[in-house]
Nucleic acid binder design. Structure first.
Lengths: 212, 212
DNA sequence: TCTCGTGAAAATGGATACAAAAATCAGTGA
DNA sequence: TCACTGATTTTTGTATCCATTTTCACGAGA
């Protein structure tokens, strides 16, 4: 067997990735009609893989399919974002509490590396790195299934996030939060780490859900 | 507009429903190879809708697709079930706490009706009614997105559950639990309801995850 | 007997063809 | 002008077709 440098996957997989990216980035705005033929043409494939991608994205909550009427980008409602933040507030502290006792020097170093990367990066990449950092915090918990659920929850929020604004205003706050959380992890202080994470997520929630 | 008695949906939708049912019921056992042509023939459709159904079910975590090698029923590992129960323990009490203040007489009546149905029903239907009851408990919380996530978590467990055993052993315990929880809901005692629910879920978890 | 090729059979992935449903639009009548 | 109707066009959903990949059985050779 030869070492596949990058398994790009099937056309359907790639189509799903690309369409997901476009939805999350806002290139396909909320509510936009998803035209099978057009998208197939844009991606240089036929409608079959596009249709499969739609099904997948529907299950992920990013697309709405209606029988005989096709697909559209799932509209985001504010109440939905509230729910997604509530779920983050449940799941992320849970994961962090499980992770902290397992934190190794390597885990700390990995997180520090990401934090360093985040300095002076552009907005889009910052958001991506920010999420990678959160994932790095939870990795030592070894909860792949839970993490997967969380990923999906996050993608729902992320789309809304970018739609809204410049995250720049929260970046300083986030930076100090991240460093404090990491420090608590390094000291294996789960209590403190969780408390800090909760207020970190709450701050993010307040920034985007005024009436939260 | 005329009232659609039952929107059966497209062939792909129906295929997904049926295949999902077969996986959860154990008719398609864990790890089983999913043959596009055979399944298409069984369902009386072509491979196209079956392929779409596979994509959907993959996103739901019930199927594993491998590039150029097709699909198989996602094998369940014990650690995964542990995670799913952990998630139930996070999410269900959260929902119940939100629901209790909103409980109306109608909500209580709806739950009582389900509890009544559950008396002397066969195992498969009991499991289904049991879940409907849990959903009835959370309905007053008005958290559709959260509920949807929970549904998916539950389907992962349910499949394992049925694979394992006769749920009969836990039915008495569950019955008393359910009545106690409902009573607490009727009295708007969120504190108590949540405590009861937590131990109810823990009992279920212990029954299926010996080393839990 | 075991291993390694080789080739046929089978299965997947994707493109295309076709039928049915929905949307659009022109024209008619009030 | 506006509402309705019926034809036309567009778009979806499904079946079928083709190319590529994988699987598997068979047989030659050590």
């Amino acid at each position: 067997m030869d070492t596949k440098i990058s398994d790009v996957g099937t056309a359907a997989t790639q189509a799903a990735r690309e369409i997901r990216r476009r939805i999350i980035s806002g290139a396909y705005p909320s509510g936009m009609r998803l035209h099978q033929e057009n998208i197939a043409a844009e991606l240089g494939v036929s409608r079959s893989p596009v249709r499969e991608a739609f099904r997948q994205l529907e299950a992920e909550g990013l697309v709405i399919l209606t029988s005989q009427k096709g697909g559209k980008v799932a509209p985001i409602r504010a109440e939905e974002v509230v729910e997604l933040f509530e779920l983050r507030l449940l799941i992320e502290p849970h994961l962090l509490a499980l992770a902290v006792p397992n934190f190794t020097d390597a885990d700390v170093a990995a997180a520090e590396k990401i934090i360093a990367e985040m300095d002076g990066i552009d907005v889009a990449q910052w958001a991506e790195a920010n999420w990678r950092l959160h994932m790095a915090f939870y990795e030592p918990a070894r909860r792949p299934t839970t993490t997967r659920q969380l990923e999906r929850i996050h993608s729902g929020i992320d789309r809304y996030l970018r739609m809204q604004i410049t995250l720049t205003e929260g970046r300083d706050r986030a930076h100090t939060d991240h460093k404090a959380i990491l420090s608590a992890c390094r000291n294996h202080d789960a209590e403190l780490a969780v408390a800090l994470l909760r207020s970190h997520i709450l701050a993010a929630a307040r920034a985007f859900v005024p009436a939260g």
